[in-house]
Design a protein around this nucleic acid. Structure first.
Lengths: 244, 244
DNA sequence: AAGTGGTCTAGACCACTCT
DNA sequence: GAGTGGTCTAGACCACTTG
């Protein structure tokens, strides 16, 4: 057997970077699923025939990139997907505690994805997708209106059954029912005005100014697994960025 | 003379963290001004009586925090302040290249700072401050309207003379004329509608929807040295955030 | 060629967590 | 107490920049 798992690095790349890339590949391939503990530093170091410090740097790199989480005294773990990517960090609604907003599915359809969305979702143009419309309420008041596109057949488990049992957060549902772990999301913020349908759902006049958050969510392998557009009252929008 | 500069760490703090804090203090105190090279790792390590690796971790920490910049083969340098904190990353105006927007000062007054601003600026309430109004144009079109508060007497050099010679970016002016280096800024994004004066300056109707970016800027020591409110057409706003 | 930061090693010891 | 990650050391060698 090959006891030593040697990693060759491209020229110009450091050994710890090459090790990190190799570990990353093993994680993405599913050798250690999310939440799982990976072997101890010392074990990995001797497995690859490198010094402990070098393997530590590799693991530190993966931790910086958010791929693993290191816990002193316990071990190194593959990170779980995002729990609920808190859309509420973009909005401030009156008297909202830290609770997740209540969620209600308004519509669910299988449709062919339009070109723009098919391109973003990394599925062929015209391929089938699942389109959800969803209303989220805070303190009993409608607050956010969402249109969500999910590629099929990856999410076919969500095309059937009662959406009422899904709960208020979507990403845990993705993980449990579809085995999809959302690892990274990119949100693009803009301002616009409400169309007729979202306005009615939000109990605001059509044309009312709104904030639009367009999200693409990605799994560990970097595939785009969700395309979402969230609308909310522009006056409830606020967001803080620190730059250095 | 005391050849060894020993750093005692609080219990529970690692030695490199204590070293980093000590170095930070020397930088903030002005021992090495912005842009200046600090002594070599080896020099600092023996100066403090620690191993090279330990001093490296301390310097790496400062680099992460944005306090210093490490350049392979050249040295470690105290970071210059922010050049122009590009307000344009929040807006997209037609046909705008990467050039800084043209700047024109509309008004400049010494006034007593209102309570809210005095609190933010870390100067006593009712203390004198400099208030600027400024119009920034992209491609010849007015694009952003700014109200800027600066504490006096720190910025008294800007209270006199012709603002026409300041150029299009403010932070280099702060550095050259007032010795103030902006090191960090916090921007809060909100939404509203234009008042009469900003609307006229921007050639938009009063009440037009606008994005509001409220900025607090800080120097190395963490003092708030600027309070700014920027307004621009809400339809030109866009911003992208990545979450992990 | 001299000086800088970047990588890698090999090993000791400490701090934390679980059983 | 056994196993984990975190800190620290001492030294070798490499890669990059400058004179």
């Amino acid at each position: 057997m090959c006891a030593l798992r040697v990693v060759e690095s491209e020229p110009g790349q450091s050994r710890y970077a090459a090790l990190a890339a190799a570990m990353r590949a093993r994680i993405v391939a599913g050798e250690w699923p999310p939440g799982c503990a990976i072997p101890a530093e010392q074990t990995l170091a001797s497995e690859h025939g490198v010094a402990l410090g070098t393997m530590r740097r590799a693991l530190d790199l993966l931790a910086e990139q958010g791929l693993v989480e290191r816990i002193h005294g316990r071990g190194t773990f593959v990170r779980q997907g995002l729990g609920g990517a808190p859309m509420l960090r973009f909005f401030r609604f009156g008297a909202s505690g830290p609770d997740a907003p209540k969620s209600r599915i308004l519509a669910r359809e299988r449709v062919a994805a339009p070109a723009e969305i098919a391109r973003a979702l990394a599925c062929g143009p015209g391929e089938q997708a699942l389109r959800l419309k969803r209303l989220r309420s805070v303190g009993g008041q409608p607050a956010l209106h969402e249109e969500i596109w999910l590629p099929l057949p990856l999410f076919s488990a969500l095309a059937e059954g009662d959406p009422g049992g899904w709960g208020d957060l979507l990403y845990p549902v993705f993980a449990e029912r579809c085995g999809v772990h959302v690892h990274r999301a990119v949100d693009t913020i803009g301002f616009g005005s409400l169309g007729v349908a979202p306005a009615r759902a939000l109990r605001l006049p059509a044309g009312h100014p709104c904030a639009r958050v367009q999200r693409q969510a990605f799994d560990l392998a970097g595939r785009c697994v969700e395309w979402r557009t969230t609308l909310g009252d522009a006056n409830a929008f606020h967001y803080t960025v620190s730059i250095t």
